[in-house]
Design a protein around this nucleic acid. Structure first.
Length: 485
DNA sequence: ATGTAC
């Protein structure tokens, strides 16, 4: 007979739920959610995953989950966990298959009134022509030599710049400046390199997208001003990651770390949590390869930015200066990083895993670009294609409680399979068009799987992190036209 | 997320 662990849950306050340490757990679990959201979360497998992560060696602070939590490989998506450098581990399952999946937001000098309804369709179609999308998509015009690909893996968005794609101002507005310095392309397998070679500059599939939208409401005028946001402004979101290359890196290291888990005598409640000590040879190799895959993703978003700009310029017949498509910021959603945090009164160097979670550093920190340092790091939270998205800002609350982390999106409520079923006999594209949103997907199935009702309402998710003080609302954006991979 | 299992 299979028996599930009974998790002892305590409501801390309106937005926090503690999973009390028991059994093999080395620390508590902490879930950020409203009472309404927690009703469904408490029945999910993902809650057990929060408890499982708490069993890993060297965990510092609680095993955390953001309100967009849902089931993932080993670690929950929406999970945040920090580990001690000496006693702790690094785990590919704590990062996810799409290494440095992330989003970038561009702002423009265009206002909504300059973009008629009919033109949005044509604009999305133009983007579709210029940016390859879908599973296995590739760019015939950008097949890199093995040596050039290694430069991409070493320099990230910096490589894209060296090739004429973008400006120095872009780099400044990317997490880590668009280049993970500890990346080592030599730790990436031949198979991963081969998969990535023709995929740079492609969108991919699933929840990846390019979205033309507008700023609908400003909540914080001072921060919005620093971020360059104004009501009615046309914006562009780019959501993509490291494609087949990152997927292969994850696959390779799960295979390897399954062995090192045994080698280092680590006991796991779930094999999918396979890991290695942070400072072991295997752990270091994974971190170096993950960094290389992250750089591929940074370069990918930078190239797509370039083609978005080109598409806008040709479509509107306006100059780059007039369009003013500038990068507001670019965040990682799936990463593990070595960071120094103040914890229980002392500075500690930690390996912070964010899987479907966003770094949300507060004002004053050196990692926040100088242009934003007085207010804090921009936090970009895309919602589903039918509702809205948010720009938030990092807070001291996040530094104190979540190792400078917050949510990353809406979070699924329906599995892909369930969504396909729910979409039967309907046209998701037509339903969205009746709400004034033009969507075009690589396949019909993509739109069905990504239907708005497959996701939680991102406004509910954002409200939780705002009220809990681990980031603060700056603006809400509304989608106008979406290109789905 | 993903040459959606080699």
């Amino acid at each position: 007979m299979e028996r599930k662990n009974v998790i002892d849950i305590e409501r801390v306050d309106a937005y926090r739920w503690r999973l009390k340490r028991h059994g093999a757990m080395r620390t508590d679990g902490l879930v950020f959610a409203s009472a309404g959201m927690f009703e469904s979360i408490r029945k999910e497998e993902s809650l057990q995953q929060v408890a499982n992560v708490a069993c890993l060696p060297g965990i510092v602070g609680p095993s955390m989950a953001m309100p967009d939590i849902h089931w993932g490989y080993g670690f929950p998506i929406g999970g945040v966990a920090a580990f001690d450098m000496d006693e702790g581990i690094v785990s590919p399952g704590g990062v996810g298959y799409d290494i440095n999946c992330g989003v970038r937001l561009m702002t423009s000098r265009l206002s909504r009134s300059e973009l008629g309804d009919e033109r949005i369709k044509d604009l999305v179609n133009t983007l579709f022509q210029n940016i390859p999308s879908g599973v296995g998509s590739s760019r015939k015009d950008l097949k890199l030599s093995p040596a050039e690909l290694k430069k991409v893996l070493r320099d990230g968005a910096g490589w894209a710049l060296s090739q004429g794609f973008g400006t120095p101002a872009d780099l400044e507005r990317i997490e880590e400046g668009g280049t993970i310095p500890w990346a080592d392309p030599e730790k990436v397998s031949e198979k991963a390199l081969e998969r990535g070679r023709s995929q740079l500059g492609t969108l991919g599939s699933g929840n990846h997208f390019v979205e033309v939208g507008m700023v609908e409401e400003i909540f914080d005028t001072e921060v919005a001003r620093v971020f360059g946001l104004f009501e009615g402004q046309v914006t562009v979101f780019v959501h993509t990651g490291s494609r087949g290359l990152g997927h292969q890196v994850c696959d390779d290291f799960i295979r390897l770390l399954l062995k090192s888990t045994k080698k280092y005598g680590i006991e796991l409640p779930d094999k999918q949590l396979c890991c290695a000590p942070v400072e072991s040879a295997e752990g270091r190799d994974y971190i170096a390869a993950m960094g290389a895959a992250a750089n591929f993703a940074f370069a990918n978003r930078q190239l797509i930015t370039h083609w978005v700009r080109e598409s806008f310029e040709s479509f509107f017949g306006l100059s780059a200066e007039r369009l003013g498509l500038s990068v507001l910021y670019d965040v990682c959603h799936n990463m593990a990083k070595i960071e120094t945090h103040r914890f229980e009164g002392r500075e500690r160097k930690l390996c912070v895993h964010r899987k479907g979670a966003t770094r949300a550093f507060a004002a004053g920190l050196p990692q926040v670009p100088e242009i934003y340092r007085q207010v804090g790091q921009p936090v970009l939270i895309p919602g589903d294609m039918g509702r809205c998205s948010y720009v938030l800002v990092g807070t001291p609350g996040a530094m104190e409680e979540t190792f400078g982390s917050t949510c990353h999106g809406a979070g699924r409520v329906l599995s892909r399979h369930q969504a396909l079923k729910a979409a039967q006999g309907r046209s998701i594209a037509r339903e969205l068009e009746s709400h004034g949103i033009y969507v075009r997907g690589a396949t019909r199935a993509t739109l069905d799987e990504e239907m708005p009702e497959a996701y939680k309402d991102v406004s509910d998710v954002v409200e939780v992190v705002h009220q809990a003080g681990i980031s603060r609302k700056v603006a809400r954006l509304k989608p106008l036209g979406v290109m789905k991979g």
